[in-house]
Each structure stands twice: as C-alpha cells, then as structure tokens.
Design a protein around this nucleic acid. Structure first.
Length: 576
RNA sequence: CGGGCCGUGGCGCAGCUUGGUAGCGCGCUUGACUGGGGGUCAAGAGGUCGCGAGUUCAAAUCUCGCCGGCCCGACCA
C-alpha cells in the first residue's frame, strides 16, 4: 500500500478530548475518528488491525471446535421479556421501534437469541455439546462512554455460547475457552491475567475475566503474591470473620455528642481526632421496595453488586434524602445503626467484626454517638461481605495481604448453568428420554477493546509500537527524498521485493521531508522500517530498524534488508 | 442521572473580567530556497465565534434557555 493513497490522516497534536494514551494515539495515528459520543469510524489502518485480531480469534476458536455463525443485531423485545432482561438491562439497551410499533433491541449480547435458536433446533443429547460463536458489532448505551474505543457504545465483540447435556461437558468447554483466550491474548502481544470475576447481569455462578494489566485500566484487580489467587475487585471476597472482641476490650458507655454540620466520616474524624477505621458508616439502600441499612467501616466503600447478591435482589439503590429523613428522623449525614425502625433490615460488613468503641451517626441531626458496641447497642440481622476490598486486605485463600493493580477487561467467560435455558424453557431429551434443560456457557471477547489494550501496553513517547501479529503493516519503506531518482527507484524496488517476500508493506511515497516521515512512522508504529536515502545508497546500503529499537539501525544491501525483515517477521507473526 | 469544566477556520489555543477592528501556532494551496528527526522565506485560501432568544446605538464578550463535548461517580467486552 502506498501512503499517499492509504488514507492515514495523522495529527501532529494531541486531540483535546482524549485522556488515555490508546485513545490519543488512535486518533493521532489516523486509526479512528469519532462520529458520535462513543461511536467511531474505523479508518483503514484500524480495520487492518481488527481483521488481524479477528483472524487470531477465529484460528484459536476453530482449534477448540467452536463454529462460527452470525445472528442479527436487531432482536425482538419478546425474546428479552422471556428472561426478564428487557426490564433488567434497562436503558443499557439501544431500543428501536419499527413502523408497526414493534419493539426491538440492538443486541448488547445474544444469550436470548441463541437460546431461542437452539431450543428450536436441538432435540437430543446426541446433538450436544454445541459450541457456537460470532464476531459482531454490539450496542450498549453506556452511562458514560469513555476512553475512545475502550468503552464505546458501538463496539466489535466476539461472543460465544455453548450448550451441554451435563456439567462435566460444560466444565471441559469452559476450560477450553480459558486456554484459548490465553493463547489469543498472548498472540496479540498482551500481558494479561485471568482473574475470578463477578458475573454481573449476565449471570451464572463461575466466571473469569481476562485483564490486560495497565495503569489506565478501569477495573481493579486484587492478587495474592503468596498463593496466586486473583480476582477483580468487584468479586474479591473478604475473609469471613466472627465478631469476637479482643481480650481485654473494655466497652465504654454509648454517648451522644454534638457534631454540628459534620456529615461525612472525614469531617467527624477530624473533629474527634479518631481514624476512619473507628467509624461505622451507615448507608441506607432501597432493595425491592424495602429499606436496608448497611454498616461498613468508615474507611470502606459498599459494593452494590455484592450487596444485591447478599440480599438476593437484582439491584440496589442508595435511598434518597427524603427516605433517609423518614427512616432516621435526621438529615443525611447523621444516620446510625442505633434506634432504626424495626422493619429496616441491618446488614453489617465483616470489616466491622472484632472491633468495638465505634463512632457512628446518632439518627439525630448534628449529632453522633461514641462508644458504640455491636452486639450491645445494635444487633445486625446479618453479617456479610458487602465492601470493596483494597490492597493489603487478607487473601480469602491463604490470608496473605493482597496486591492491588488495574486492568482492562478484554475477555469474560461465564458458566451460565441453566439460567437461560430454564427461563426460556430450552431443553433436550437425555438418553432415558427425559426432558432436561441445557447447561450453558458464554464467552465474550472485546475485539476493539483488545486493539486499544494493545496500544496501552505497547507504546512509547513517539507513538504506537505494534506487536507484529496485529500490526496494520509489517514493514514500512521510507524513501527520504522523493526528488532523488536513485532513492525513489531503490525504494520502489525494495517495496516490490518486500511484497514478493510475502510481507505486508507500506511505502511512504509522500513528498514530505525526512523529519515528518520519521515522526509519522514512529506514530503509526509499523514494527519494521527500511529507510532509503542518498547517503546510504552511495555505499549501496539501506537501513533496517525495528520500531522498538529504532535507533539501532542495521546497514544492509537492499536484498539483504528485505530478507532480514522477512526472517524477523516470520518469527514474530506467531506472537511473542 | 448527580457533581465539576469547556464549545472561537481542519487541529491546538488566545481574545471574554473592562461590549466597538476576530487573532496566534500547526495544517492546507502556490512559488523559491532547502533536503537524514515535524526546515526557511514570500504570497494566499479558509471562521454562521455551538444554537436560539434577550439587554444594548453596538454582543465572541453581558443575561436566560437549549444543544454538544470532556472529567469524577453508579454500568461493562
């Protein structure tokens, strides 16, 4: 491909609205352009990257016996109503209404569609297991699209679904996917980690996320340096603890103190000179129409996902100011566990266990209490794990302190069990002629997000440093002076020879100066570079350099240069 | 949706406080010089100042409303 015809609109300056590196570089290197909030055009270079990632995905999935199909993006509301997700998914789904007034969703995922397909076609255990996937544009009307293509409203995803007669078969396929994902991300040149995950709205019991480790990642990852346990911070479990006070703990009396205008833990902590750990933070939630008081340590955050699971409801919502006044008789900021109405369920987080002499809200405006003892002044209805874990917390497996890091979630696999097959009554006949619901698994992989993650992990101050396996081109030929006939002739020859050698080559045939060609080459990040200039040509040589070590160029004769790159690329194509 | 910030040639920004002439850098066009890390000089093209009301003799600038974007939180491949 010739640069002059390739449509690679590079930018000299950073776009003002791009925060993270991958977004900035994708825009600057001419990979994407925004069309609407969270919606992008993939320019030619990006399309080549996406096709390469897709090829790797297809190769690895074909290798574990998955079969590709394509389902429609448009799916009827009735299907979503069968599983209750028309309501549950809520505004996340892009909905459309046709001319007859029928409702549809632009698919955010396809469990319903595929389950509907399979229940109509599969009758017997003999037809199982079934392992199907598609690569398709997905739509999710995210609350806050962000970071360019990383969290977009329209994105490319590989989604796979498997159907089984029994759990053993599901387990086997689930393992196949975990391994295949590992090979896919490795071939894409990514440093990743598979972690235990919360299954969220998709559902199911067992779930793993594939996290590409990156500072800018949106997800927290907690991992144990001692035993290898790793989990997303949404999932990481606290060590269950009994509320046993340390020997010698001398309870003080419960006292009410005036704390005018001090509504946050930090405010009161400052006033009293006590650390946040000495506080019981009381948060009121609405769950299925009922109010729940959640007690966590003052330095902890409640994880609403965990809370919902503990309460056995779909979702919880922080109670509004009005409801808080009704329940506590005080303004927001002074809620406490003592003296709440009987119909308010009290859930205490394990982070409070084994401690006493707490500070808490007094359920009276401008007042707090000190000397609070759980068990004496308040008896929680339930102890549970509802707080977000942080680095330093104990590993639930071995008790060692956990490390905290950040990651980009590029893949997520779930064991769904019979969640969808039961809801949609999708069943087969087993060998005894009995009707049984399918065991199901589902497996997502973000293709566009993988491209973004690859840039997050592979860049330097000059631009992108593509791993060869997913680079838009493998070698860039750069004639430094387009007015020099000798240079142009040599570059054309090398370009032709490169393609002859099976390399994906880009020829920078623009009449620009050397400096801007080098700058653009760094930006766009093609892994190999052959520089042709009068200076080298005098000695009959050109320069070969990798993008990663672009300062260490080798001076070789043109034919040898092409061969040098060919040999290197052949090795790198397979993935690092 | 809540909280904070921002909309001025293609891109990055100044001008707004204290109303009156729309400006800079990059990019683009033409020419000359130059020619190994975004070169120099000269001449150009290109702007409904997000949209709509209002105040005023006069609005990019002041007021109100709307639209769009970004950042922080709840969502997720």
């Amino acid at each position: 491909m010739r640069w002059s015809r390739a449509f690679i609109p590079t930018l000299k300056e950073d776009p003002a609205d791009a925060e993270v590196v991958s977004h900035r570089l994708m825009v600057r290197a001419g990979l994407v352009r925004p069309v609407a909030r969270g919606v992008y055009t993939y320019l030619p270079l990006m399309q080549r990257v996406l096709l390469k990632i897709q090829r790797i995905v297809r190769e690895e999935l074909d290798a574990i016996g998955a079969v590709e199909l394509v389902m429609p993006i448009l799916s009827p509301a009735e299907l979503w109503r069968e599983t209750g997700r028309w309501e549950l998914y809520g505004p996340l789904m892009v909905r459309v209404v046709d001319r007859h007034g029928r409702e549809y969703a632009l698919g955010p995922t396809h469990e319903e569609v595929i389950t509907d397909l399979v229940r109509g076609e599969v009758r017997s255990y003999r037809q199982l297991p079934l392992n199907l996937y598609q690569i398709q544009t997905k739509y999710r009307d995210e609350i806050r699209p962000r970071f360019g293509v990383m969290r977009a409203r329209e994105f490319l995803m590989k989604d796979a679904y498997s159907f089984h007669a029994d759990e053993a078969s599901l387990d086997a396929t689930y393992r196949d996917y975990v391994e295949a994902y590992g090979r896919i991300f490795e071939r894409c040149g990514l440093v990743f980690r598979a972690v235990e995950a919360a299954s969220g709205e998709i559902g199911g019991d067992v779930s793993h996320e594939f996290m590409v480790l990156a500072e800018t990642g949106e997800s927290g990852v907690l991992s144990c340096p001692a035993c290898g346990y790793a989990a997303s911070s949404e999932r990481a479990e606290a060590v269950p603890a009994a509320h046993v006070l340390p020997p010698g703990h001398a309870p003080k009396p419960l006292e009410e103190i005036a704390t005018p205008g001090r509504t946050t833990v930090a405010d009161v902590a400052e006033l009293l000179g006590r650390p946040a750990e000495a506080f019981v933070k009381t948060l009121l939630y609405q769950a299925d129409g009922r109010t729940v008081a959640v007690l966590v340590r003052g330095d902890r955050e409640v994880l609403e996902g965990k809370l919902a699971q503990v309460l056995g409801v779909g979702a919880v919502e922080l109670a509004g100011a009005e409801r808080v006044r009704e329940v506590t008789g005080a303004e927001v900021g002074f809620a406490g566990p003592v003296g709440l109405p009987d119909d308010v369920r009290v859930v205490a987080d394990w982070s409070l266990a084994g401690r006493g002499d707490f500070v808490a809200g007094a359920n009276r405006t401008d007042h707090h209490v000190t000397g609070l003892e759980i068990g004496r002044d308040v008896e929680p209805d339930q102890w549970a794990d509802v707080a977000l874990l942080v680095g330093g917390d104990a590993c639930p497996r071995c008790g060692e302190g956990l490390d905290e890091g950040r990651g980009i979630e590029v893949g997520h696999v779930f064991k769904l069990g019979t969640k969808y097959s039961e809801a949609m009554d999708a069943a087969y006949l087993d060998e005894n002629g009995e009707r049984r619901h399918f065991q199901m698994g589902c497996y997502g992989l973000g293709v566009t997000r993988t491209a973004a993650a690859a840039i997050e992990q592979n860049h330097d101050e000059g631009g992108i440093v593509w791993p060869t396996a997913i680079a838009p081109f493998e070698v860039e030929v750069i004639p430094l002076n387009m007015d020099s006939e000798a240079v142009v002739a040599a570059a054309e020859e090398i370009y032709a020879a490169s393609r002859q050698a099976g390399l994906e080559a880009l020829l920078d045939d623009r009449p620009d100066r050397a400096g801007s060609k080098f700058a653009d080459a760094d930006l766009v990040g093609i892994p190999w570079r052959i520089v042709v200039g009068d200076r080298g040509l005098k000695d009959g040589v050109v320069e070969v350099a990798s993008r990663r070590a672009r300062k260490d160029a080798e001076r070789l004769e043109p034919a040898a240069a092409v061969e040098r790159v060919r040999a290197a690329v052949e090795v790198e194509r397979a993935g690092v």
